[in-house]
């Protein structure tokens, strides 16, 4: 029973983190059909910016409360700056190219971002633990969990909700759905698809950076964290169905619970549990759980 509760809470916590780290990826893929490897770079940038900002702020000796504001602000700055540079500087010249080629382009961008991050912040680790400790712990069935974990779960739910509401209840969102559904027809209807691409890429990049920025207080920010997140995020969105926001939620939950269960029940399986789940899901649902309908081309 204790194990079951632990699996549920741990799984939820991990799923929230996974969702935040992968939702930007699925959004960009859904709208732009770009499998954005540079997403890992955004994640790392966000983590570094947030850890660095919090570190600077905490040195001033002011109360920790404001540090929570630094996280989204830094994510926004990192996401918008890097996103704009990449989208306006490189990607917009490449739209319409082969999907696989675009993967390579974003991979090249990822390599460059990795070294840019290293040039800005060096190779020393950055720790910004203050926010993670500030919210204390909450006991569930005798196991203490940090309040910060629940904050992340809350933010993940908020992001999911906002995205869903934004897509279904705002004008921009509805138009975006149209672009996702059929790019050519939307162009024909007079939608400025290029503008939507820029907006989407910036939102996606900022979400990636937010994932990193929120994780920063829980970890030690070191070179290479971007590379670790990419495959995990890919797995999540493939399981859920590429380009689907509800898919990313379900994918994150499935992977989160699977990993938590393997840790508690059979630890050696942790290393490949995520890939086992992915293979199993794809064997049953070849295009993921919430795959977008593809028109058959005759």
């Amino acid at each position: 029973m204790l194990t079951a509760i632990a699996i549920a809470v741990d799984g939820l916590g991990f799923a929230a983190w996974l969702f935040l780290s992968s939702v930007g990826l699925t959004l960009i893929y859904g709208v732009m059909r770009i499998l954005n490897i540079a997403h890992g770079g955004f994640y790392a940038l966000g983590a570094y910016a947030s850890a660095w900002g919090i570190g600077l702020y905490m040195q001033t000796g002011n109360p920790v409360g404001f540090a929570f504001l630094i996280i989204p602000v830094m994510a926004l700055i990192a996401g918008v700056v890097a996103g704009l540079a990449i989208e306006r500087g490189v990607l917009r010249f490449m739209y319409g190219r082969d999907e696989v080629l675009m993967v390579l382009v974003t991979y090249a961008m990822f390599l460059i971002l990795e070294d840019v991050t290293k040039l800005i912040w060096g190779t020393d680790s950055y720790v910004a633990w203050q926010p993670a400790y500030a919210l204390g712990t909450i006991d569930i069935a005798g196991i203490p969990y940090t309040g910060y974990k629940f904050l992340i779960i809350g933010v993940a739910m908020l992001c999911g909700g906002l995205l869903y509401w934004g897509l279904t209840h705002t004008r921009v969102g509805k138009l975006l759905l149209v672009v996702i559904e059929d790019r050519e027809v939307s162009m024909a209807l007079g939608i400025n698809v290029t503008k939507f691409f820029t907006i989407t890429f910036l939102i996606g990049a900022t979400l990636g950076a937010l994932g990193g920025a929120l994780t920063a207080p829980e970890i030690s920010v070191v070179p290479g964290i971007g590379a670790e997140i990419i495959v995990m995020a890919f797995a999540v969105i493939v399981i859920g169905g590429m380009g689907s926001i509800p898919g990313a939620i379900i994918g994150a939950l499935i992977v989160g619970f699977a990993r938590a269960a393997s840790v508690h029940i059979y630890p050696p399986a942790e290393l490949f549990s995520i890939y086992l789940v992915m293979a199993a899901v794809l064997a049953v649902k070849p295009y993921g759980l919430f795959a977008l309908a593809e028109g058959r081309k005759i």
Partner: peptide, 22 residues
């Protein structure tokens, strides 16, 4: 009582720490 082997560079040890606590 338990042997945990998370992946190298995993960074997230929430579940492992719960298992160690329980």
């Amino acid at each position: 009582v338990t042997e945990q082997f998370p992946k190298v560079y995993a960074g997230q040890y929430g579940s492992e720490i719960s298992a160690l606590l329980t």
